[in-house]
């Protein structure tokens, strides 16, 4: 049985303007949650807002569940006002998360709030001593700073910032290092892009992905995980298909039931028909999606 829980808010702070870190005391859900999964959260009782909303799991901390969210509409504006002590109704975790099973040299590509689930994935990869490349994109320095602070906070050994050249040679070096014992040095290297060039590479995060994949190496990245705006995901899927690298994308859609019943949250499936984001997703193999129709 999936329990619908009332969880106490233990924290709800801004990490940058309009982005908040919500911490809920909910041991059952925290124990079960995996990167890429989501919870359904009713931000206020009663009919306004009416529907429970999906929030991706940003992480867990003992019995606590972390949700990183951006204020976008009425519901999230209301949520931003939630004070510690308030009880919120939620259930989950729901959906299919990232499959991190076979990855040896993964790249994580985050755009904007895509940081929320990918920081959780980075944490799990770090725990498994798998070196990973984390590419993060945003509009400007201001918009990415708080999010990258969250990534750093999630990791035991922190992050190392790297240039594209460093990214290229990263896996060779780190894989060798991983064969020896864990040294305490960062296993996650972070490359950043901003559209206005105020921090990191000037341009799109997918530029960094292309650079990282294009260099011919003995040790090619073997999996790309991504979450972010749809145009970014489309570009990631295209680049990965071209480079023949496995790619998992986390998709969004306006959602109602969150349990696979209403068929409201669909995205087009390769080969015709639709996939339910809440059930077959939210994380899908990029090849499952008909990107032309998305």
């Amino acid at each position: 049985m999936t329990t619908i829980v009332k969880a106490k808010v233990v924290g709800n702070q801004a990490v940058r303007p309009e982005v908040f870190l919500l911490t809920l005391e909910t041991p059952e859900i925290a124990a079960a949650a995996r990167p890429g999964q989501f919870v359904m959260l009713k931000v206020a009782p009663g009919p306004d807002p009416l529907l429970a909303r999906p929030f991706s799991v940003h992480g867990t901390d003992g019995g606590k569940l972390l949700i990183l969210y951006q204020v976008r509409g009425k519901g999230t504006r209301l949520l931003a006002e939630a004070e510690p002590g308030l009880e919120l109704t939620l259930w989950g975790p729901q959906g299919r998360g990232f499959d991190l099973g076979g990855a040896k040299r993964p790249i994580l590509v985050a755009g904007g709030m895509g940081m929320a689930p990918l920081a959780f994935a980075a944490k799990v990869l770090e725990e498994r001593a798998i070196p990973s490349l984390f590419l993060n994109g945003g509009a400007n320095q201001e918009s990415i700073r708080g999010l990258e602070d969250r990534l750093e906070a999630m990791l035991v050994a922190g992050i190392e910032r790297g240039s594209v050249e460093r990214l290229r040679s990263f896996f060779a070096a780190k894989t060798k290092a991983a064969e020896t014992s864990f040294s305490g040095a960062p296993r996650i290297i972070l490359g950043t892009s901003t559209e206005d060039g105020s921090f990191g590479h000037k341009g799109l995060v997918t530029d960094l992905l292309e650079e990282s994949l294009s260099a011919s190496q003995d040790l090619q990245p073997d999996l790309v995980l991504s979450c972010g705006p749809l145009p970014m995901l489309k570009a990631v899927a295209r680049i990965c298909a071209k480079q023949k690298v496995a790619s998992q994308v986390s998709l969004e859609a306006p959602m109602a039931c969150g349990v696979g019943a209403c068929q409201g949250c669909v995205q087009p499936a390769a080969g015709g028909g639709y996939l339910r984001v809440c059930q077959e997703g939210p994380v899908l193999d990029a090849a499952q999606v008909d990107w032309e129709r998305v």
Partner: peptide
């Protein structure tokens, strides 16, 4: 069924 988006609050 219909193309998405299919629901709106």
């Amino acid at each position: 069924g219909n193309p998405p988006p299919r629901i709106a609050e």
